[in-house]
């Protein structure tokens, strides 16, 4: 029972990480931007979603608020600031660091320092029984919803013209530009998508993880581990990396809470040493 709960929680957390990591990975892949504010989307999405859901008594409105707000945030960051510094990695990373601090301070100002938690909506509370096993219904919901998002993302990336352009840009942005791909517009789309997915993860994660000052940095750290283990810009890599980090973090926390980071840090270091571009990276 202990193990099943652990694995179920790990998978649910891993799927949340997938929502965050895929955006980080796509933004890096298309623009070579290391977006330090990616954890901040999670934070803002979680706070806003929690606040709106509590005020309106509607979980769905909470999700909508978190997703739309972070999407706008991402688009503004990209079009008003990052776009002008295309190719200048240090300028871009410093800008995103500025946003990380601004957004952290802003949330501290608005929502204060006490952790907040979103109540699980009634329809999703309780557990599901299946042949002697018991799964918490909400975690099942998170896993399934994230899996659906992952499937949709996969289909878009593999089957559509937009997806083909993204893949071309990930391989070589300059070449893609030369082949007629509108890289700036694609970049804005990736920022919108990445921020929205991180915001969604924030709202979805709030009932199980809570939201508190510093959550942005913890999430950013785990998302970085995901993309480094999986390989930058690789869809299957991000999925594998997310599940791995989610499981390792949960199991590590249960078995040796103090050194739980070792559970994914050691494999990450090993992968860096052997395959610097990640498991699925080229």
């Amino acid at each position: 029972m202990f193990w099943i709960t652990l694995v179920a929680n790990g998978v649910a957390f891993g799927m949340l990480l997938f929502l965050i990591g895929s955006g980080l990975s796509l933004i890096f892949g298309v623009m070579r931007v290391v977006n330090l504010a990616h954890g901040s989307y999670y934070l803002i999405g979680a706070y806003l979603g929690t606040g709106v859901a509590a005020a309106t008594n509607s979980f769905l409105l909470g999700i909508a608020a978190g997703v739309v707000a972070t999407m706008l945030l991402g688009v503004v960051m990209q079009t008003a600031f990052l776009e002008r510094f295309g190719g200048q990695i240090l300028a871009q990373v410093l800008l995103t660091m500025g946003f990380l601090l601004l957004l952290a301070d802003l949330s501290l100002w608005v929502w204060g320092g006490t952790p907040q938690i979103l109540a699980i909506p009634d329809a999703l509370s309780g557990s599901v029984r299946a042949g002697g096993f018991v799964f918490p219904r909400y975690r099942l919901f998170i896993s399934l919803l994230s899996a659906l998002v992952a499937l949709a993302l996969y289909l878009v990336l593999e089957r559509t013209r937009l997806g083909a352009q993204v893949r071309a840009a990930v391989d070589d942005p300059e070449m893609a530009q030369g082949l007629g791909v509108n890289v700036p517009r694609l970049s804005t789309a990736m920022f919108a998508l990445g921020a929205a997915l991180a915001g969604l993860a924030g709202v979805l994660g709030s009932p199980i993880l809570g939201v508190f000052p510093g959550a942005d940095l913890e999430i950013l750290t785990l998302a970085l581990a995901v993309v480094i283990i999986g390989g930058l810009g690789s869809f299957p890599g991000t999925l594998v990396g997310s599940l791995f980090v989610g499981l390792a973090d949960n199991i590590g926390k249960a078995l040796f809470p103090e050194l739980s980071y070792i559970a994914f840090f050691a494999p990450m270091a090993l992968i860096l040493a052997v395959r610097p571009r990640g498991l699925f990276g080229r």
């Binding site: 290391v34 750290t221 480094i228 739980s260 980071y261 994914f264």
Partner: peptide, 29 residues
């Protein structure tokens, strides 16, 4: 050993990740 072969934005990303994980490790230990 893990970063000396990288350059540019990859170097930045890997040092960032290593630094962050070291931070997380100290926080939980």
């Amino acid at each position: 050993i893990l970063v000396a072969g990288s350059r540019g934005v990859y170097f930045l990303l890997i040092t960032l990740a290593l630094g962050q994980v070291t931070w997380g490790l100290t926080l939980r230990w």
